[in-house]
């Protein structure tokens, strides 16, 4: 059974490479039972979104083209 610490590593690596079948399964089983790691995973997705959106963020007074 995966620990939370290990789950965070897989959740981070999942942002960088496709996880293997057994990694994915262990992670999914863990997430089903763990609210903290589920939130951690959503936070990883949020970071990706924020980084991608950083340069196109709208500034005060900036008009659309």
């Amino acid at each position: 059974m995966l620990s939370c610490k290990e789950a965070t590593r897989l959740l981070s690596e999942g942002q960088d490479r496709p996880l293997g079948v057994s990694e994915k399964m262990a992670l999914e089983l863990h997430l089903l039972m763990c609210r903290g790691c589920t939130n951690f995973g959503k936070q990883m997705d949020f970071l990706r979104q924020a980084c991608r959106g950083y340069l196109s963020r709208r500034k005060p007074g900036e008009d659309a083209d």
Partner: peptide, 17 residues
Amino acid sequence: ANAHWTPAARPSDWGDP
């Protein structure tokens, strides 16, 4: 010690990002 979150450190729900 068992590598699970301490209650205080458990990541929270950030709602609608």
